[in-house]
């Protein structure tokens, strides 16, 4: 007997196959369809504003997570900090000063509605699940209830197995790490520019945003030495704006 409906299929495949390296097994696009939205993304928080993207539909949802990581603002960071769900049924009607940089960028991606739910274990917020849709309007009662079912099931999956986190922490082969290149590039930039890791990450983020490029892509360029952040040539640029020269 095959499970009934898309939600059942998502729940049946939520846990990753043993040894697959991922932390979530289900097809993200299928999950988005089951919830009646265009895309879904799940990020777990690390504290100090960092997070790791665990699972997402490719395209707009992944880009939205990257943007929020780059800018440090948006529904995801807000929910991660408060542990309370955020529902934005129409981005156009949202006061611009809520997320001044993110809002126009999100609209430019074609997003009109965003719903972000916390992954709560007890009172602890482990991360967020963000749904997005090109069509404005609230998330109706049924998809909303199903979205909570999925966040709870994800939370359970994340806390049940301590072994998968041990493998992840040790960077064992095959354990996926979406932002690996970002942190590698951060290490490289800190040496190139002689700055702290925290500042190196800020420089990387600033460079990506200034050039309108995805953070991971810029990070991969740094790791491949196509972009470098060597000491400035004394042109007096402020440290935060500095760095990020194209080419070897």
């Amino acid at each position: 007997m095959v499970p009934k409906g898309d939600l059942a299929a998502v729940l049946a495949s939520l846990l990753p196959a043993p040894g697959s390296g991922g932390l979530v097994g289900a097809d993200a696009l299928r999950c988005a369809r089951a919830l009646g939205v265009d895309g879904v993304a799940v990020s777990v928080t690390v504290g100090s504003g960092l997070n790791e993207l665990l699972w997402s539909t490719p395209g707009v949802s992944t880009q939205l997570e990257d943007l929020q990581f780059t800018l440090g603002e948006g529904p995801g960071p807000e929910v991660a900090a408060s542990g309370t769900a955020v529902s934005v049924p129409d981005l156009v009607r949202e006061p611009v000063d809520r997320w001044p940089v993110l809002l126009p960028e999100a609209l430019a991606l074609g997003i009109r509605a965003v719903f972000c739910l916390p992954l709560l274990a007890g009172s602890a917020c482990l991360g967020t699940m963000t749904l997005q849709r090109a069509r404005p309007g609230p998330l109706e009662e049924m998809p909303l209830a199903d979205a909570w079912i999925v966040t709870h099931a994800l939370t359970a999956a994340l806390v049940q197995d301590a072994g998968q986190w041990a493998a992840f922490a040790a960077a064992e082969d095959g354990s996926d790490f979406y932002r690996a290149a970002v942190h590698q590039a951060t290490g490289m930039i800190s040496v190139q520019a002689g700055v702290s890791l925290a500042e190196a990450l800020i420089r990387l983020r600033a460079h990506a945003f200034r050039h309108g490029r995805p953070l991971n892509e810029v990070a991969e360029d740094v790791v491949a030495r196509r972009v470098h952040f060597r000491h400035d040539d004394g042109d007096g640029r402020a440290p935060l704006a500095g760095g990020g020269t194209e080419g070897p």
């Binding site: 777990v44 986190w165 930039i189 040496v191 190139q192």
Partner: peptide, 21 residues
């Protein structure tokens, strides 16, 4: 526990970058 795992992984990636550079 999850934070520790993520933080540890970030440290490893950063150290790779530092050493590679």
């Amino acid at each position: 526990q999850m934070h520790a795992a993520l933080t540890s992984r970030i440290l490893i990636e950063q150290a790779k970058g530092v050493l590679a550079e």
